[in-house]
């Protein structure tokens, strides 16, 4: 057992590809049994961080320990206890789902018959039984992803790295993956998940680290991050976008804070510190004859957290570098 209670510890990790500095000193801690979401736009350095932690890439400087083992000096010990599911499903297109799992089980040291038993068990657990004898190239995105995760947990790892596990999946498949991740957490596995989806981090993580351009720009629980931005946000959507300037003025006066104009031409939002004034905002708007189709007060979304931290919405950031390297 390692001396610390952390499953993953990263100190001042740096990595450059040629002249491009991808990681500029990343610090991370993930508690045992916890799920940390590493959040950031394309090119922020998420994949590079995960590949270093999974021993597929070596850092230029800094240290990274997984379960107390250094990822460079004790790569084999790390490899024995972790599993990685990459951004591009690491399964063989020209084999069936069943054959993929049997092959990986064999490479882990299972006998032929044990490999077959374990593969069958996972195929059933991951709802792939009907497709088990079909070639993977005919699988849907969600099925591939599930097969990929199944291949990663043939031996249930102590730490699982999930690199953008739901990118490109439809909502239903995304929920299935989330359920798998939750069950895995319940079984005691520590998970480090990278994602561009704020909702995903919100759904699964107990801790979030936001990175941008190779540095950590925020680190905390979801609650902490949201509180740091403001106690709540009023979202208003107008019937007629032409009313927006008038509505903006009324909201600014009533709430006493700056109003944010959303990209939707009929929508506005404002972060409020005093929720009592929210009700008067609605009545003031209707007194001014402005029709409102949507009016809500809620916790700030992670999108708003990102906006507050970087001054840019998460989706609009330019990709700094090629992530896969």
């Amino acid at each position: 057992m390692p001396p610390t209670g952390y499953a993953i510890e990263v100190n001042d990790l740096r990595k450059s590809f040629g002249k491009v500095e991808v990681l500029k000193g990343i610090n991370l801690r993930v508690e045992r049994g916890g799920l940390l979401a590493l959040l950031g736009p394309n090119g922020a350095g998420k994949t590079t961080t995960v590949r270093i932690l999974a021993t597929l890439l070596q850092p230029d400087s800094g240290t990274a320990k997984v379960l107390g083992h250094d990822v460079v000096r004790e790569a084999d010990s790390v490899r024995r206890r972790v599993s990685l599911t990459g951004q591009f499903a690491s399964v063989d297109d020209e084999l069936t789902g069943m054959e993929n799992l049997i092959m990986v089980a064999r490479l882990l040291g299972y006998s032929w018959s044990d490999a077959k038993t374990r593969a069958t068990e996972l195929i059933n657990a991951f709802d792939l039984a009907e497709a088990s004898n079909r070639l993977v190239k005919n699988y849907s995105g969600g099925m591939r992803r599930r097969l990929d995760i199944a291949a990663s947990i043939i031996i249930t790892p102590d730490v699982l790295f999930l690199d953008e596990p739901t990118s490109g999946l439809d909502p239903r498949s995304r929920r299935q993956v989330w359920d798998i991740v939750r069950t895995l957490l319940a079984a005691g596995t520590t998970v480090l998940l990278t994602t561009q989806y704020l909702e995903e981090a919100d759904q699964l993580a107990n801790r979030i680290v936001i990175i941008d351009h190779g540095t950590v720009i925020a680190d905390g629980t979801i609650g902490e991050l949201k509180t740091s931005v403001g106690s709540g946000t009023v979202h208003v959507r107008l019937y007629d976008p032409k009313d927006r300037p008038a509505a903006e003025q009324i909201m600014a006066q009533t709430l006493g804070v700056a109003v944010h104009l959303e990209s939707d031409p009929a929508a506005l939002s404002a972060q409020v510190s005093n929720p009592e004034r929210v009700a008067s905002t609605l009545s003031n708007l209707s007194q001014a004859g402005i029709s409102v189709t949507d009016f809500s007060l809620g916790q700030p979304s992670l999108d708003e957290v990102f906006l507050a931290l970087t001054g840019q919405p998460a989706e609009d950031q330019p990709a700094a570098t090629e992530e896969y390297a």
């Binding site: 068990e121 031996i155 249930t156």
Partner: peptide, 13 residues
Amino acid sequence: TLRKAFSVRERPA
């Protein structure tokens, strides 16, 4: 079923 599938921690040689 899923939880049972996640309980194989033993590593073969």
